[in-house]
Amino acid sequence: MEQATVKWFNAEKGFGFIERENGDDVFVHFSAIQGDGFKSLDEGQAVTFDVEEGQRGPQAANVQKA
């Protein structure tokens, strides 16, 4: 698992990007966020996640709020 920071997340559209420590951004979809209830992330929030290869490149999976 990697630890990184949420760059931005649009709760209405259900997706955003996580900024990795190496500077690369990773796409995150609300369905990858672990937990119950409304799944959203806040800008600047610390998260841990795995990286999977998606249809359009790397994307976050198993996202957990740190």
Rank of each mutant, 00 (worst) to 15 (best):
I18R: 00
E19Q: 15
A4C: 06
S31I: 05
A66S: 12
D42K: 15
N22F: 12
G23Y: 07
F9T: 02
E53A: 10
I33G: 00
A61D: 03
W8I: 01
G14V: 04
G37M: 05
N22Q: 10
V51E: 04
Q45T: 09
A66M: 15
Q34I: 15
G14L: 02
E19A: 14
Q64Y: 11
N62C: 08
A11G: 08
V6L: 04
N10C: 11
E2S: 12
M1R: 15
H29M: 05
G16R: 00
V6I: 10
S31G: 05
Q45R: 02
E53M: 15
E12G: 10
G54F: 05
V26N: 00
H29K: 01
Q34D: 08
A66R: 09
M1E: 09
G35E: 09
W8L: 03
Q45S: 08
N22H: 12
S40C: 14
M1S: 14
N10M: 04
I33H: 00
D42N: 14
F49P: 04
Q3M: 13
G37E: 07
V6T: 04
F49D: 03
G23T: 05
G37N: 06
Q34W: 10
V26R: 00
F9H: 02
G44Q: 04
E19I: 14
T48Y: 14
K39E: 06
E2L: 14
G37P: 06
A66Q: 12
G16H: 02
V28I: 08
L41P: 03
Q45H: 06
V51D: 02
K39C: 09
E53P: 10
K65P: 12
K39W: 06
T5E: 05
V47S: 00
G16Y: 00
K7P: 03
D24C: 11
Q3V: 14
G44W: 05
F17R: 01
W8G: 02
R56F: 14
E21K: 12
K65S: 10
G23K: 10
A46C: 15
N62L: 06
G35P: 02
P58I: 09
V63N: 00
H29E: 03
G35A: 09
F27Y: 06
F27G: 00
A32Y: 02
F15K: 00
I33K: 00
G54K: 07
A32Q: 08
D24K: 14
G37T: 05
L41E: 01
D36F: 11
R56I: 07
F9W: 15
Q45P: 01
E52W: 10
L41R: 00
K13F: 10
F49K: 01
F49L: 07
G14E: 03
T5C: 13
E2N: 11
K7I: 05
E52N: 08
D42A: 14
Q34L: 13
G14C: 06
A46H: 13
V6R: 00
G16K: 00
K13H: 09
S40R: 11
E2Y: 15
L41C: 05
G37C: 09
E19L: 14
R20G: 05
H29A: 04
A60M: 00
E53T: 12
E19R: 15
F27S: 02
